[in-house]
Design a protein around this nucleic acid. Sequence first.
RNA 1: GCGCCCGUAGCUCAGUGGAUAGAGCGUUUGGUUGCGGACCAAAAGGCCAGAGGUUCGAGUCCUCUCGGGCGUACCA
Length: 698
Amino acid sequence: MFEQEEKYAADAIGRALEAMGYTPPAKIAMRPIPLEGIWGVGSTVAMQLAGKDRAKVGEIAEGVAERLRALNHFANVHAENGYINCIFDVGKVATAVIHAVLTAGSDYGRGAAIPGRVMIEYAQLNTHKEFHVGHLRNVALGAALVRIMRFAGYDVVAASYIGDIGLHVIKCLWCYREFHMGQEPKDPAQRGRWLGERYVEANQRLAYRKDVSDFIARLVLEDMVFNGQVDSIMKELIHAGVPNGDVAKLLGVLVSHKPFDPTAYVNDEMIPIFWKHIGAELRSEKRRDAIKHQVDGLHSDSLASLWTEYQRLDAHFTQWWAPSATWEAEARALFLAWDRKEKDIVALWEKTRQWSLDELLQLFAQLGAPIEVYFYESEVEEPGRAIVRNLLERGIAEVSDGLPVVKIDEKLGLAKETYRTLPILRSDGTTLYATKDLALAAVKFDEYHVDHSIYVVDARQSFYFQQIFKILELMGFAQAAQCRHLPYEFLTLPEGTMSSRSGNAVFFEDVAADALARARAAVDEKNPDLPEETKAEIARTIGIGALLYGMLDRDNNTVIVFDWEQALSFDGHAAPYIQYAHARACRILERAQAEGIALPDATSAIHLSAPVTEEMALLEQIGNFPAEVRRAAETDKPLIIANYVYDLAKRFSDFYGACPVVQAEPETRTTRLALVDATRQTLANGLALLGIHAPNVM
RNA sequence: GCGCCCGUAGCUCAGUGGAUAGAGCGUUUGGUUGCGGACCAAAAGGCCAGAGGUUCGAGUCCUCUCGGGCGUACCA
């Protein structure tokens, strides 16, 4: 908005410097003056040219200021502390800002078209898994970036890449088929979630043998009391008829703290007997600990943690231990059956996949995520294998340790270990994420003709994407240089990493339901007379807006520790504050209309001969919007827009408190109404970029 | 070992090489017979992890150290 003024100032300063016998730098940067109550742009060029010589700095700044004053373009130009400050003619610039907003409307801030097509891939969600709040960060960020880049003028294709096949899907299908065949929740809306629970169960079952083994190893290391009981337990095992060889082997493992391997024993019955003894021993330790607690008030944390884990495992021991010996092999076999496209497994996959997709599409709609293209992992498995074959034939890939890999450093001729080696197919021929990603990149280049490709994926995959991009380069794709991974840090829980695999996750559905309920309570209290449907709509707007904003008002590479209360806070630096500013702006305009006052439009005269600080601060912020949109797009930071709209709302609140609008004298009233309308419009435009609606009432 | 990211107020975080480092939460004290109190005003709270360097100028750029997180060949 102020480009013209900045350009004018920069050019004028350049000419003044030349006239004074200096060589101006190639680019004279103008920055807003950060002093309160002063609206204009300043330059530091005098300090750059004069260096340490303070007297000369003042001399240059003063000389330039004098020459600029003579041009009569700015209200004033003065030299201060070495800065050359050009003070805007407030009335002129204010008129330009307000007219620009009211003329452009919802297009205010939009940039001119930028050549080249950009594909932004985000929302890489998996079927057969539940959508948790960690995924929300990805969708919020990717969607905001799509809108911001598009608004800034880029030709953006928004793509989602759905993980509808892979080890996780196979595990889930295995669990479903073996233990839940024919079951499904009555409410179709719950199917996706139910399936996600089956996936968690599958992981627990498949990890069961290892978890038991790890537990025994831990017990031996941590529990000294248990160690003292080992001898007597061994004797009891022999009494129970366990072969001497197995008992001896187990004893060796325990006393030497070696890893416990359940497959090493002749008699699988030994472990259940041993397990019973472990339980008995832990119970008696618990009793002793309870008595000790009465005496000295102390508990053993280690024992408590062991006991919790024992209970978790023991709950399934009788049912899971024996059959679990073959589960892993079953799941692997199922993956191979999938690869052979066996009818019943494909049918089961199709049915359950649709359950998840229904849920995901509904979620994307609820979040307003713009997506034009859907890619599916299942569609790039075969093309991926073809690429692997091709890479092997061309000698870019080779078979090492029984599987195809690309030794990237070697192929690039790098002596220093940089990109290392990436496996591109499993040794049993099933596909990896890399297999499919290579094929997908080819589709993006060849079929969608994208010039730039952005991957919005969490930061833990940064190294992996460097590897992928280098392989694409080795394959000969010129666009490989235009691929960019946009990393964002993970969202964790106070108690640790969130993982849908272990079931340790906060589901988006639950958080959203809570957010809606809280928003609804507030609406009921403040606007009890609104129609039911309107109240529900406003509650959605506020609840979802608060959640989205919470994901977007931090830098991409800060780890977010999810705090339930903080995420649902409607006070202070949060979306409802901004929405509230918008609603109040709307109310002022409504009030004016109700009193028969005509609302100003893009042709109304703006009078700001003696503006108050709050008016200038607000105008300045409104005028900055287009530049902030550009900066956000260029740096991939929706955070810039999130901060921008908050600052704008804050300045509006200041203005609101200091400047009566409807009660003002007619001339001032018209100007302030125009300012309120411009604020309303800019708030709405900014929030829209974040995917947040701006309500008229709330 | 190597690589990436982070370290700013009690807590959660902003901060485009430039003027006095800012918000929110929390704490304390005030404000509405005024356009909506999801608000506003004020107070308290900082060796910007540490040490060097580049620069007229460093929270910001470079190097090193410390502390934390995450990667690092068949998870995605």
